[in-house]
Design a binder for these strands. Structure first.
Lengths: 148, 148
DNA sequence: TATTGTTATACTCTATAACTATA
DNA sequence: TATAGTTATAGAGTATAACAATA
C-alpha cells in the first residue's frame, strides 16, 4: 500500500499545525469549564498540572514547562501564591533562584486538575489505537525539536 | 511485545495534554519569530493561516477555526482590516452575518504564513514515519471529539 | 424569539526594557 | 559580567453581559 504519497499530496501545507492549535484550544477550554469550581485561568491550570507531581521547581523551570516568559510566570505565581496554592522561597544552593512548592491546598487543587486532564485524555484515547498514540507522541516530540 | 500495558503504566495522567500544550506554545512562538517581519501576533497568524485558502468565511466560522470567541475574533479582525489585510461585508443570503475576505495584500501575507507553517511542519515530519503522522492526526481528531 | 456580530468592562497573557540581588 | 527573578508599561487575548440588526 502506498499511502505515503497520497497523504503528502492531500495536505500540502501546515494542516498539522492548524490541527494542533485547534486541539489545544478545544481541550484547554473544556478543562477550564470542567474545573470552573476552582476558579483557575488556563495558565494557572497548566501551572498546577505541571506542579502536580510534587517536585519543587524554579520559576524558569516552570516557565519552560508551561511555555511562558519569566514575566508571565511571575504573574501566574503571584495569583496562585496569594490564594494559598504555593509558596516561594530562596533556593538554598543558588539564592538568585526561587523554589516553588505546592501547599497542601495547592496539592489538592493540582490533583483535581490532573484528574480532569487524565479523564479527558482517557476519554479521547479510548477511541484510538495504541500505535496511534505512539505516533502522536513521536510527532509532538519532533515538532518540539523542530521548533528550537 | 506488550508495549500497551507498559505505556499506560508509565503515564498515569494527562501527559498527552501537557505535551500538546507545550508543542503548541513552542511552534507558535517559533512561527511568530520567523514571521516577525510581518508584525503579526499569534492570533493574527492563526487567522491568516486559516484564511489562506482564499475561501471567504463568516466571523463565527473563523472563530471556530481559530478557537476564539466572537468578541476576540472581532478584535483580531479589527486590526487585520485596519492594516488592509481583509475586508468585511454583509453576507448576501443572511444579512446578520459578516463575510470576511482577504485583500490582495492579505493573500500575500497569508501565503507567507502558510509557507512558514509548511516549512516548520516539513522540517519536523521529515524525522517521523508516515504511520506516526497518521496516528498523530487520529489522536488530535479524538481529542477534538472528546472536547465537546 | 433566536442568531450574528459588535461594544463595554474587567482581568489575564504577553513582550520589552529596566531594575535588584546574587553568582 | 552574567544570571534569576521582579516590576513597569503597553498591547493583545479572554469571558461576561448588554446591545443593534436581522432572521
Amino acid at each position: 500500500m502506498n499511502t505515503e504519497s497520497v497523504e503528502s499530496r492531500l495536505e500540502p501545507g501546515g494542516e498539522s499545525l492548524l490541527a494542533l492549535q485547534r486541539a489545544t484550544h478545544a481541550t484547554l477550554h473544556v478543562l477550564t469549564t470542567e474545573l470552573a469550581a476552582l476558579k483557575l485561568t488556563p495558565s494557572e491550570i497548566n501551572a498546577l498540572a505541571n506542579l502536580a507531581d510534587g517536585r519543587p521547581r524554579t520559576v524558569s523551570e516552570l516557565g519552560a514547562a508551561i511555555g511562558s516568559k519569566p514575566t508571565t510566570t511571575t504573574g501566574v505565581l503571584d495569583r496562585l501564591e496569594k490564594r494559598g496554592h504555593l509558596t516561594r522561597a530562596l533556593k538554598p544552593g543558588d539564592r538568585r533562584s526561587v523554589r516553588i512548592e505546592l501547599t497542601e491546598q495547592g496539592r489538592a487543587a493540582a490533583a483535581t486538575v490532573r484528574e480532569a486532564f487524565a479523564e479527558l485524555e482517557a476519554r479521547a484515547l479510548a477511541a484510538v489505537r495504541p500505535e496511534d498514540v505512539a505516533g502522536y507522541r513521536a510527532v509532538l516530540a519532533a515538532l518540539g525539536e523542530a521548533a528550537r
